[in-house]
């Protein structure tokens, strides 16, 4: 068996979710290679080559891959993928954008968001907002998978010494073009991999008040998350939405402030190690999953919490 793992990166650094996908690849077993496709991304290939357990790094360096658009990348990966038994990518927005295209070009299914590897062709994945767990067997010769990062420990980023081999880029002109990007620049840890996450919901009431969540997060060295209601109301940015249709998190500590605990929100955080809920409604469903619940007005409890930390 040989496995190709698609590296996630920004042309400068390897994103750590790649290390989680590599853990899933290890669980499948076999030779593991990594594809780094981007532009001026030699440094990423070197980081990937240093990861324990990687036997070879394929480097596709071309302006066509600079923004990792799905159209040119899927063609490249589908061409390369024919020689592998498995092609894996993190279930990030980038992996979700790309891998179904790869699967369709290979005429195979894509199994989304796997949370466990039971054998080389059988995987577990959550369905119905995590209210059920499906065990799915692939009947295809090539298995195309996306990997839920929070379900697999990262492999060690060092200890490997793989060779880096250049692969030729496909030069087909594409009918999609990158225009611009507005990415949050923040000193806070990444939401998907942070050890501590502080999330705010509709209970915050306004964008101004949402600053309380950010202040509390900074006290704890935490990432900031939110419920859909808080994002829809414009209290905070879309990429902070935690849940079934947002980012999945599983930190050591998750603080839900002014969040009721709808199933769609729980789907994105209920694997957290310790959950704390602050809510003024003692009946809020979030308390059913919280290790520590505090029934209180957040506008009193959060400032008090900051004082005591």
């Amino acid at each position: 068996m040989s496995i190709l793992v698609i590296a996630e990166h920004d042309n400068r650094a390897l994103n750590s979710v790649t290390l989680n996908a590599l853990q899933a690849a290890k669980a499948i077993g076999g030779e593991i290679q990594v594809l780094v496709a981007g532009h001026h991304c030699q440094a990423v290939a070197e980081q990937a080559a240093a990861v324990a357990g990687v036997s070879k790094v394929l480097l596709a360096d071309s302006p066509a891959y600079e923004h990792r658009l799905a159209e040119p990348l899927s063609k490249l990966i589908a061409t390369l993928g024919k020689d592998y038994s498995h092609v894996l990518a993190p279930a990030s927005t980038s992996g979700k954008n790309l891998m179904p295209r790869v699967a369709a070009l290979l005429d195979v299914a894509q199994i989304s968001d796997i949370t466990a590897v039971l054998s080389s062709d059988t995987f577990q994945r959550p369905i119905y907002a995590g209210n059920a767990v499906a065990t799915v067997q692939s009947l295809d010769a090539i298995k195309v998978l996306t990997v839920r990062s929070t379900a697999f420990e990262a492999v060690a980023a060092s200890g490997g010494a793989a060779a880096v081999e250049a692969v030729t880029a496909s030069a087909v002109p594409e009918r999609s073009r990158f225009v611009s990007e507005a990415l949050a620049v923040s000193d806070r840890p990444n939401l998907g991999s942070a050890k501590v996450v502080v999330s705010g919901g509709r209970g915050l009431g306004s964008a101004e008040n949402f600053a309380l969540i950010e202040q509390l997060a900074d006290k704890l060295g935490a990432a900031v998350g939110a419920s859909r209601a808080a994002v829809d109301a414009g209290f905070t940015a879309n990429d902070r939405q935690v849940g079934q249709t947002g980012t999945i998190v599983a930190p050591e500590l998750y603080l839900a402030v002014g969040i009721s605990g709808a199933i769609q929100h729980l789907a994105g955080m209920k694997e957290s190690k310790i959950i704390v809920a602050i809510n003024k409604d003692p009946e809020a469903p979030i308390f059913q999953v919280a290790d520590y619940g505090l029934v209180a007005d957040l506008f009193e409890a959060v400032p008090e919490l900051m004082r005591q930390l």
Partner: peptide, 21 residues
């Protein structure tokens, strides 16, 4: 693909309520 089985996820036990910050 073949759906082999569908199970309920591990239920999380509700913890405790604390009475102060």
């Amino acid at each position: 693909t073949r759906l082999i089985k569908v199970e309920a996820p591990a239920e999380r036990q509700a913890g405790i309520k604390v009475d102060s910050v």
